[in-house]
Simulated scan of single mutants.
Amino acid sequence: MTTPTDDAVRRAVGAVIDPELRRPIAELDMVRDISVANGAASVGIVLTIVGCPAADRISADVRAAAASVPGVTDVALHVGVMSPAERRALTERLRGGRPAREMPFGPGSLTRVIAVTSGKGGVGKSTVTANLAVALARRGLSVGLVDADVHGFSIPGLLGLVDADGNVPQPTRIDDLMLPPVAYGVKVISIGMFLRRAHGEAPVGAVAWRGPMLHRTVQQFLTDVYFGDIDVLLLDMPPGTGDIAISVGQLLPHAEVLVVTTPQPAASDVAVRSGVVARQTGQRVTGVVENMSAMTLPDGTSFALFGAGGGAVVAETLSTDAEPVRLLGSIPLSTHLRTDGDAGTPVVVAHPDDPAALAITVLAEILAAAPRGLAGRSLPLRPE
């Protein structure tokens, strides 16, 4: 019979992934004393905070990891909490040496930042953003999503982050860092996570904020939320060209902009404005998405409820000799896209063969394959 060693159990336990920080707990310095005697393993770990929402999952995963070591017949788990000094050391390590409240997505960042905009509301921008984020995550990318539509936030509902009382889970706080909830592999932050209501009460009231509050909220989402090393950060922008569009342009002047429109001129004419304002702040229009385009009926005929051609017109209008803009995709009208969004399950997950889901998946492939401009950026390489 195999005799388990302390080191073998430590390696197994240390490889457990913290579900919020998405790193091995050994790397996070959460493993404490481990000993094995006569097949019985005594395992000590510490959680980051008191009342850690991931405590049960971490404990279960640690028990399972220790029990998986050949020769271990019993596991006694001892759970503690980090000291304030240990938490400070952890947050400093997570920041990678950056000062507190410094925005990690500046021009030198390797994270690709894409702001999804529209000229007007009601074009399905948030639905496209939520499904696009999930489609990118399903391709193996690490994805973050900021719901920057503070007045009209809808991302938590579209991604199923709503409980029976209509509340959304709040981010876990480690000192001055917030750990965003994860849905379908996407790290999500929204103002809806900070507005609570009790059982049976009316829905949360509107957020009645003006420019300075809106700017500070978006800034805090970008500085105080720990997304970690992500490949793509999507921002679900509010419609139009108001305060938040200007703030994002100031905070993220290197961001790409994806313009969402519907086919009819009433939407496409306005959509052009969001691209123009983005360019004025130095951002680059990476492409146009036409939502609610023609759908194919069971008899094979095409039904264009909102007309046709608006997406191509927006792309052509925004194109310049130095910066051509492409129509990257047309997402057809889809009942599943609507009902799955209402149910909090992205259509790319619930009905991946739906025409709208297929169009969004192709859009994700196009964006994922686009080259990343690394000129002038410092790569995170250091000599050994």
Rank of each mutant, 00 (worst) to 15 (best):
A15V: 10
E20Y: 09
T262R: 00
D269I: 12
A208I: 15
E102M: 04
W209V: 03
D7C: 03
N38G: 12
A271M: 03
P355G: 10
T286D: 06
A54F: 00
I58G: 03
G140I: 11
I360P: 04
A294L: 00
M30C: 12
G205M: 15
M193K: 06
K125V: 13
A304S: 12
G44M: 12
G124Y: 00
I244G: 08
H78K: 09
E92K: 14
V81S: 04
E20K: 13
L77T: 02
G211A: 14
R138W: 05
L195W: 05
G310I: 00
D269N: 13
A294Q: 08
T73K: 14
L145N: 05
R196Q: 15
D56G: 12
R279N: 15
E384S: 13
A65N: 13
Q219Y: 02
A40C: 14
R57P: 04
P298W: 06
V75F: 08
G144M: 08
M292I: 07
Y226S: 09
E92A: 15
Q283D: 05
G282Y: 02
L358A: 15
R139I: 02
D18Q: 10
G282C: 03
S190I: 06
I155E: 10
L28E: 11
L235A: 07
V325N: 12
L367A: 09
V16D: 09
V325T: 11
I174G: 07
T281S: 12
G373L: 05
A137Y: 03
I49T: 15
R101F: 09
T2L: 12
R95F: 03
L47F: 08
M237V: 07
A294H: 04
V270N: 09
V116Y: 01
V362C: 10
A364K: 11
R101C: 07
D149R: 00
R93M: 09
P346D: 12
A304P: 05
G311V: 00
R23S: 11
I230R: 06
P380M: 10
S68I: 07
T2V: 15
R87C: 01
T73A: 14
R284W: 02
V188E: 10
I45C: 02
G97L: 01
V349S: 01
L379V: 14
A304Y: 11
R382C: 11
E102W: 02
R101W: 07
A65P: 07
E86P: 08
G211M: 06
G166A: 05
G275K: 11
G311A: 03
L90S: 11
E27T: 14
R112L: 03
L363I: 13
P107N: 03
V347W: 00
